[in-house]
Simulated scan of single mutants.
Amino acid sequence: MERRIKLIWDMHGAHAKGTAEHHAIHLKEFAEREKISTTDVGTEDFSDTHTIAYMVVEEKDMIAVRDALRPQRAEVAED
């Protein structure tokens, strides 16, 4: 099984949660349009002012998604 990579976009400020949720919608649309196989797209709250939007992709698709969407960071997704 190929490794999965979690690409992460950090949102900060009073509207972080809403911004991250909106960004996740666009991540799903991008994956569908570009036929990128994702295992998960969503958001995760860390505080009232820090929420992330993320997309989990197979390692083979990571470079193409990274270059097109420019996430702030990435990590190996946990199984």
Rank of each mutant, 00 (worst) to 15 (best):
A31V: 03
Y54I: 03
D45A: 15
T19W: 04
S37R: 10
S37K: 11
V41N: 04
D45L: 12
I36H: 13
T38Y: 10
A31L: 05
L27G: 09
M55R: 08
A14P: 09
K28W: 00
A14C: 04
T39K: 12
A24P: 05
A24F: 06
A20Q: 08
S47V: 08
K17W: 02
A31D: 04
T49N: 12
G18F: 02
D61P: 00
H26P: 00
T19N: 12
A53D: 02
F46A: 11
K60S: 15
E58P: 02
H26S: 13
I36D: 12
A14Q: 13
T39E: 14
H26G: 12
S47P: 08
A31S: 11
K35L: 09
D61F: 00
V41S: 03
I52F: 05
M55V: 06
E21D: 01
K17M: 05
G18P: 02
T39A: 12
A14K: 14
E21F: 00
I25V: 15
H15E: 14
H50P: 01
L27S: 09
T39G: 09
A31F: 03
D61Y: 01
D40N: 13
V56M: 07
H22E: 13
E34C: 02
G13D: 01
D45P: 15
E59Q: 06
T49S: 12
D45E: 15
E29K: 11
K60P: 08
A20F: 10
I52R: 11
E32N: 14
S47A: 11
G18E: 10
L27N: 09
H26C: 04
F46G: 11
R33F: 12
S37D: 11
T39R: 13
R33N: 14
R33V: 08
K35T: 12
V41Q: 05
I36R: 10
A31P: 03
D61K: 00
